[in-house]
Design a protein around this nucleic acid. Structure first.
Length: 259
DNA sequence: ATGACAATCAGAGATTGA
């Protein structure tokens, strides 16, 4: 089974890219972030016609996450637990009912800039709530994963120009420590489990010719609980998508599980 | 040091992103 994650930076602007990508990469499950759409405006029938079940947690203009699945979805939950006042749509999870059910969580972690400030405080508080949910997922008998745009550069080798990010919310010690705490719980960074080479990125800024200079960062991640990591076969970044016409600033990343 | 780019909503330019 192939599960992908992709920060699309707007469903309306990216629809042609997503459709061609679904045909090329053929994910069974696609976790989408930054759909920038309310649920009512998400073009669900286009994906249903391709054989996907569609579950969205949208928001006007900003944020918004969605799950596309060729398998039935059960027990869909919207919103990261721990703060009923949080009105930002950044988390959706569901059980993918394949022969072996998999719990998939689709996340769009807050950026956190500028630092210091309320946005950084919100990021760190969100990561604390993520840690709490992660402690539950690690104990599950069933395979489970958390994937999406973490907005965290885990190590210096995950940035082409680490110096630029020293004071950035994506790279500051607090953010990286919160990410490391997830690994310490027993989650596996699927890409790093498969590939130890530097210069593998998932995001290149639209500005300053970042793509042409390969001035990227690795901030989209798959974290697998132990029962899911046991099933890991492959993990790849669809780098080519960044070179297409009207691309997102992120590219997809996917895992193949032995299911 | 600043802005560079792009998407959204709205219908210009501010806001957000990373």
């Amino acid at each position: 089974m192939r599960i992908a994650t992709y920060n699309i930076n707007g469903i309306k602007a990216r629809l042609p890219r997503i459709l061609e990508w679904l045909d090329e990469t053929q994910p069974d499950v696609a976790l989408l972030q930054e759909i920038k759409s309310i649920d009512e405006n998400f073009p669900r029938t286009i994906f249903e016609d391709k054989g996907y079940i569609v579950e969205t947690f949208g928001q006007k203009s900003f944020n918004g996450v969605a799950i596309l699945s060729k398998f039935p979805l059960e027990d869909v939950k919207r919103g990261l637990p721990g703060n009923t006042d949080d009105d930002q749509s950044r988390w959706i999870e569901a059980s993918v009912m394949s022969s072996t059910p998999v719990r998939v969580c689709c996340l769009y972690l807050p950026n956190g800039n500028p630092t210091p400030g309320p946005k950084y405080d919100y990021k760190l508080a969100w990561m604390d709530r993520l840690f709490n949910r992660a402690t539950e997922l690690i104990k599950l008998e069933e395979p489970a994963l958390m994937a999406g745009d973490y907005n965290v550069i885990p190590q210096s080798e995950d940035a082409n120009s680490p110096d630029k990010w020293i004071n950035d919310a994506l790279h500051l010690p607090e953010s990286r420590n919160e990410f490391q705490k997830l690994l310490n719980l027993g989650f596996t960074d699927a890409f790093r489990c498969q590939n130890s080479e530097p210069m593998n990125y998932t995001f290149w800024d639209f500005q300053a010719g970042a793509w042409n200079k390969n001035d990227g960062i690795r901030i989209d991640h798959f974290l697998l609980n132990p029962n899911c990591a046991d099933l890991l076969e492959d993990c790849q970044i669809d780098r080519y998508m960044r070179g297409r016409e009207k691309p997102s600033d992120h590219v997809p990343i996917w895992v193949d599980l032995k299911i």
